[in-house]
Design a protein around this nucleic acid. Structure first.
Lengths: 217, 217
DNA sequence: GCCCGTCAGTGATATTTGTCACGTAAGGGA
DNA sequence: TCCCTTACGTGACAAATATCACTGACGGGC
């Protein structure tokens, strides 16, 4: 893709998924940003990494994980088109690193906005300023829900919550996922997840298949 | 306290704990804000409440809790002088409510800034804008630490982390607290906390007394 | 000094979750 | 078709934590 068509693509994506941005802001973003593609399962961030840009997701999906010293991962939330990574903003503005890893769940495209631009955008464009604040707010709330689920809920409730979330994100009752993957996301073990899923199936809440779970509504 | 001395007090506090604010910003804040005192254990926020102002803590300390439907509380973090409540900012800007409760741990004083002022402050004063972003950032990081501790750590590690935090916040090796209170904060039970503390005492990490725990460094 | 309420210590037991050790089943490639 | 890998099912057991029931111990107020 040459420079011209890339800029056009960025504008197109901004129009579709970030329609709240003023045209002048969209122009500025297209001018200074680049479009980047990530394959399924590709790592967008790894722990300890510094950011040079903030990411606006325009296609696909990204899962964010908190990682501990031993490399255990804990799924915190998932981003889709129209979302921005609050972490990349946070760490970008302070040039700090974070113990977060992020992976694309499918083919994903993101607009990379240089952090050098952040200050100017914040002070010049009200829609950007509102967007950043709203991003912080909603991620913060989402993180509080994560705290809720691990602080107050037992594994079966967390599993249910997880499945409902996936269903909503995919906009589909059929979730293509392995028990092992769920276990990793919930920081549990495959056996536990399998057993709980079996119980749910017996209660008629879902139907299990190989590599797939169908929610019965 | 009459209006004149209150404004003077606000300026004094801003000078001491928020010295990064431009004088013009401090003047503006003093002009439009009020000073409020909370007794020890007084509730600053309760779940479902709307905010009309954002709070800058200038004296004392505030503990924030996440609350579930059944009224269980889970301690998330503690604020002291120089901090602002990110939640009150977040909810204030969106006029949304939150399932958070906050209580003063001792006699606490806070400057209440009307949310109506937020937009103007953000766009007019760079030091305010940086302060708000830094507040979001540090609370977000703190919340991630909370997720870490409950996702990856066992009760004894969490207890150790909790005590170290209290020690730091109080700036004192002697922590005046009951086992019951710790249990509530960690969403555990008194017996478990007592047992774990006993073990720590046997390992020589601390000394237990009635209503007090002395950390041995 | 005595009483009483709060705080802390402790054993017994239940529940939840993680771990180990298998067995089985589905589907893809040689 | 026959493997062979990956996914899933399941029993047995271990570990952590919650819960119950009770005892003792301290300290303030009388």
């Amino acid at each position: 893709m040459n420079v011209h068509t890339e800029k056009a693509a960025i504008r197109e994506f901004l129009q579709t998924h970030f329609s709240q941005f003023e045209t002048e802001l969209a122009r500025k973003l297209a001018e200074h940003s680049v479009l980047r593609e990530f394959e399924s399962d590709e790592q967008l961030m790894r722990p300890g990494q510094y950011f040079k840009s903030t990411m606006l997701i325009v296609q696909g999906g990204v899962k964010l994980y908190r990682e501990d010293q031993d490399g255990n991962e804990f799924f915190i939330y998932q981003l889709g088109p129209g979302n921005a990574c609050a972490l990349s903003m946070i760490c970008a503005t302070k040039k700090e690193q974070s113990q977060i890893s992020a992976r694309a769940v499918e083919l994903t495209k993101a607009i990379l906005v240089p952090i050098a631009l952040m200050d100017e955008l914040m002070t010049s464009y009200k829609s950007w300023y509102y967007f950043v604040l709203e991003t912080y707010r909603s991620r913060f709330e989402e993180l509080l829900l994560v705290v809720d689920s691990i602080a107050f809920r037992s594994m079966d409730e967390r599993l249910e919550f997880y499945l409902k979330n996936q269903q909503r994100l995919l906009n589909n009752d059929e979730i293509p996922i392995t028990h092992q993957q769920i276990a990793v996301d919930l920081n549990s073990s495959r056996e536990v997840v399998s057993r709980l899923l079996k119980k749910m199936e017996q209660r008629g809440m879902l139907r299990l298949g190989r590599n797939t779970i169908k929610i019965i509504t």
